[in-house]
Write a protein that binds this DNA or RNA. Structure first.
Lengths: 126, 126, 126, 126
DNA sequence: GTGGTCTAGACCACG
DNA sequence: GTGGTCTAGACCACT
């Protein structure tokens, strides 16, 4: 369900967050679905529970999941990331950096759009 | 020439790298142009020379700049980022994450492409 | 494991890099093996952690080692130095200089080849 | 006569030394031949006289050239680099490093010998 | 003047 | 515990 790249410089807990979001976006996880307990997932991924906990806390903060005391953790009912202006600006900045990098690698506007489309399609299909 | 966001979680040296690349891409810095000395830029940015040095060394590794011993640092002759497969894969992964976030914020394919175009245009113009 | 020549004009961090590569090549260090933590090696060698860190970062760039966040540093899975053309040219130039010196010291072609063989054998055996 | 690579990390003065030795080895410069004055070469190479002077001093120390006061600088009568044990050991160490690097790039013993031969031939011919 | 290296020490995020 | 970043200051070689 969740596969980690320990060598990546991206923190483990962020990888968990990302993949959970991915599963939700693709519909593998639907509102109300239960997700593994902190301990279970930690055991499964062979990491410390603290790391999983950190991921879950952030997911809860973003209202992707909900914890019901004594019951477990579930995908939230209505999922829609809060699109605050600050967050959007940060994203644009990151995208700007990536686009610059692509340009310097020789991609032109058309090539970049193509690449984005390609990534988009891949994401939806598989 | 370089402006830092000291609050950002992005390391200072990376910010310098990014902005130098930006200036090169936009043509503000052309091959052969001298860039500020390590000490000078450090003074200007109110950081230690070591941090500037780290940025410059990484830029040299990427063949964006060239240092001439005892003389200073200059924009390299031929600038073209090496597009090795590993690097490209990493970039695609990062872009995938951004696109996913956008989708979850409500953007559809068209909207995302629009956003990319917008960012691209802004980058070229200003 | 690593022994430094503090008098050498060769930077300490380069000496560390070189010796780590040596150990890998000789099989003393195998893929997956943990290498000493930055602090531990620094203590052992009586140098500052920053210097060790610099060496490790360069080794990671060359894909000799991999760092796992919060865990430590390990010998990479597949080790094969990337043989880009630029690097090879630099090496040839250095070798050319050495060979010239040897010639001027009186070595002829045969003698040089003998010397190279000798160095090669020593390297493998001990 | 002397062509410099300002971008190289090899000091200018060392490049001059090397090339002078090269010319001597190839016979372009013979014992008794005059070499340019410090100022002339400095002008020609567009560098400061101090750098040329440093190179000449080292060449004189190695008994490759001789300065005759009021006359100029000349290639020494009998040229044979002093092959002291220390120097040889340093060379072997450097060669060892290069060979290791080659091995890790995939060269085997035969390939390395081939490369050395190749470099040797190139050096003699051109 | 230039960049490169190193020290001694600090703080941080991650697991 | 781990590695990554940064500071403040030093020394060095090169030009």
């Amino acid at each position: 369900m969740v596969s980690l790249d320990y060598k990546s410089n991206k923190p483990i807990y962020e990888q968990i967050i990302e993949q959970m979001k991915f599963h939700v976006m693709k519909g593998y996880l639907k509102p109300g679905d239960a997700i593994p307990s902190v301990r279970k997932l930690a055991l499964e991924l062979n990491i410390t529970p603290g790391t999983v906990s950190k991921a879950y806390q952030e997911l809860e903060r973003q209202q992707i999941i909900e914890t019901i005391r004594g019951k477990g953790t579930f995908i939230a009912g209505e999922i829609r990331l809060i699109a605050d202006e600050v967050k959007l600006q940060e994203m644009k900045k990151r995208l700007q950096t990536e686009i610059m990098e692509l340009k310097m690698m020789g991609y032109d506007k058309k090539g970049i759009i193509e690449l984005i489309k390609e990534i988009y399609e891949e994401m939806i299909v598989c």
